[in-house]
Design a protein around this nucleic acid. Structure first.
Lengths: 139, 139
DNA sequence: CGGTATCCTGCACGATACTG
DNA sequence: CAGTATCGTGCAGGATACCG
């Protein structure tokens, strides 16, 4: 496995007088977890699994563009973090079902507003970009 | 500038009968925006600027670990997306102030619960990882 | 079917040097 | 001070091949 799994026990004690002290530290647990959430595929997997249990191949087909390798890696990370449950049926050919854990569900609920925000303001962002690009082009 | 600025007008029309149709598409605006949010430094910059206007050097000092280049790139992206405002004082030596736009503020408000979630469940995630690693080691 | 193991490549990013 | 421009490189991640 290539994944360095760099862990360094949380060097982030968070002096709690400031709720955003987290931002300045590296190897902060919060940052590690946000990185997972930030991951290109994780969100998609979580969103899909929130609806129903899915098999590996179903996920792969649904998340068009993901390589088999990256889907595997993503699912392993999510499983390791306790966000996704993996059930291997003892059949042949093998069948593996993935589903969200309770923790994964709470995360999904937390993410929903973020997706909603994005949908609400995407037009605004697009026009902001256009305006910026125009300004730059003009000089 | 190295940044490809790959734009492709939103090939994501989002058939709205399914709020999570967004997940399957690439070059979806939602995904592009999430990628920005997901960015390693963007969140930190937004969190810092939500508190007060800051100068370039202040940000650089505060976000320990960021290179000058990456801070510049990050700020430019955020400015282009209309999340951050950049004000250049006509003085010498130059002085540049960064602050959140209204849009940036709404984004920060939306992100807060996510950070809170992370802080709430980080212990649970850490122990989930430990359990997973133990299981793997055991075989 | 649901993975691993291996190789290879692009580009994200750091380091460094220069500038208005 | 607040950037740009240029070069070098590590590693994330795709492509491919093989396996229980």
């Amino acid at each position: 496995m290539e994944d360095g799994t760099s862990e360094e026990p949380g060097s982030c004690a968070v002096t709690d007088d400031d709720p955003f002290q987290w931002d300045a530290r590296q190897n902060c647990e919060v940052r590690q977890i946000l990185d997972r959430i930030a991951d290109k595929w994780s969100l998609l997997v979580i969103a899909l699994l929130e609806r129903r249990t899915m098999r590996f191949t179903e996920l792969k087909k649904e998340i068009d563009g993901v390589s088999q390798r990256m889907l595997t890696v993503t699912l392993r990370q999510l499983e390791r973090d306790g966000l996704v449950h993996r059930y291997v049926h003892a059949t042949v050919p093998p069948r593996v079902d993935y589903s969200l854990t309770d923790l994964g569900c709470t995360l999904h609920d937390t993410i929903k507003p973020l997706v909603a925000w994005t949908e609400t303001y995407q037009e605004q962002i697009i026009s902001a970009r256009a305006a910026y690009d125009r300004a730059v082009a003009t000089g």
